[in-house]
Design a protein around this nucleic acid. Sequence first.
DNA 1: CTGAAAGCGCTTACAG
DNA 2: CTGAAAGCGCTTACAG
Lengths: 345, 345
Amino acid sequence: MATIKDVARAAGVAPSTVSYVLSGSRKISAETRTAVQAAVEELGYHPNAGARSLRSTRTGVLALALPLSGRGYLPVGGRFMYGLSEAAGRHGYLVLLVTPPGQDDTGAGLERAARGRFADAAVLMGVEMADPRVAAMRELEFPVALMGHPDDEASAPWTDLDWEESVVAAVRALREAGHRRVLYLGTVEEDVGARRTYSVRGIRGAERSAAESGTAVDVCHSSDDPAELYRRLDSRFDSDAPPTALAVQHPPAIPGILRHLAARGIEVPRDVSLVAVGNFPEDLGGLDVTRIELPVERMSAAVTRLAVEAAAHAGDPGPSGDGGRAPNTLIPPHLIRGATVAPAP
Amino acid sequence: MATIKDVARAAGVAPSTVSYVLSGSRKISAETRTAVQAAVEELGYHPNAGARSLRSTRTGVLALALPLSGRGYLPVGGRFMYGLSEAAGRHGYLVLLVTPPGQDDTGAGLERAARGRFADAAVLMGVEMADPRVAAMRELEFPVALMGHPDDEASAPWTDLDWEESVVAAVRALREAGHRRVLYLGTVEEDVGARRTYSVRGIRGAERSAAESGTAVDVCHSSDDPAELYRRLDSRFDSDAPPTALAVQHPPAIPGILRHLAARGIEVPRDVSLVAVGNFPEDLGGLDVTRIELPVERMSAAVTRLAVEAAAHAGDPGPSGDGGRAPNTLIPPHLIRGATVAPAP
DNA sequence: CTGAAAGCGCTTACAG
DNA sequence: CTGAAAGCGCTTACAG
């Protein structure tokens, strides 16, 4: 593999000059620059990542800390991994996946990535309200950006869909259609138990909706086990005052829910209305559901920018001054009207 | 951040001794080893990744080359990214995501990762029958392992579900239930056009099924656009000899297909039977579909092992001897009987 | 406008 | 059983 010396020799200059041409951090004569660029092209030269990071203390890599879900896999990941990888690429960064090893949720993999200088900053997914990884990385003075909206908004730069407002908007749409008994089917209980920010904020939205609008909003957690989920739904629909509408923050379950309800003779939206909260386009299997979609591209771009900025300012004065806080991004919900909301019976 | 010198000082030994303790490549007295380990623990020492890779030419990183889908995103990715990251972790490797930048499909990001020594080997996803990335990496003598089964089986180590046998098995199950007119709904046409291995081999399976069993197997490509997909289905169901069964190699579309057919008054399995080929558990939204699931864990583990081995043997004699070829893994299909196959009418 | 030199933090022959 | 020393390929003050 070609080294900077090979390029220098081919271009008839010193290695340091090659480096300066590549970094653009010094004025170079057009002649020299052209010769160097030709040699780089000719030899297919790419700087050795290890040497570069050793010398400059910058790796050009962002660590992506995936959540440990208990269930092993958060389907939320795939889309975001793509989005982040692309956004990172636009900033000249590559993305390193860091999965939590087995039990430990403080992120041994993340710590290795941070201490071993595998990356310049980390993006944390599946953020919890008081996420231990934030404290751990702060301890190491390792920059992070959060995909999630923790209770302590100043603990780290973050971005998120406004889940609380999303559920409020979903309930409002249902109320405007005349619904007075809404079942809020939230995230799976494992996520609630872990106090993931989207779970907790979704529930807060449901509670606020009830308080503000006088709509009865029953809060029910979802389950990854369809049978268990349908049991919970059945218990609501078998009650004296069954819901006339659903707000569902567990979108991948929706096709199965529609099927289950249909098997009970309950048609959407004839008998019950439904709004999806925070779905991916593919979650709904091509069904035209009234929904608030997850703005993956926007969230990915935002959190990547925060991580890149945090990396750039690593080693700066620190969080002393009250001014200059990171520009966190809370993305407002956007309701897309599909075919699953009808006037209340 | 602590360096090897800090550890050496704390343990009262030479830096080289610390290195030997960590690598285990030299006999060390119990006393010395204990002292070093204590110092490592005490200081929270992790070797600097850049320095280590510069010196040893091993990065401990596997590049994961994601496919450019044209459509931007292959939902297949998320599961595999998790599976690969975990499998890699078990081998002591981290995973670096490499997304193809914009147009170029030969993998400029991959080339940068290879030439810049960001990784020791690459795993290629979304492999095409004659994948240009394989040739490009061979040119660089950069080790690869393929998630896919290319025409030239000796071009690189690979692993895959046996898609051809999977479709054959699906059609056989339908034939055994008495079905004589089967519609094979394959992958989306973009994947067929790109000659992705699973697309081409699925079609081969459909064709072989027809030839061998005397079953009429109509080959139809799927579409990411549900409306277009339903149009294609409708044209088949409106024909003189409509299919009595479907074999669907585009599982995320299945919930929508069931819904669409139901809207036409076609119930599964009462009026038409269905087998899913190569689905993720979550693709089916909790529906009890007769299916051949994608063995993600097994495929991830297998391809990771191949990549790790390829990395270990990088720089070996080369593909000269005919013996010692990589142990490719073609995983046979396993049919799970659900509730969507009934006897033909 | 360009070059010579130091040094980032490791690993691994070489030496004893 | 352990240590001193060279050197991986870069970047960046220092010098002219």
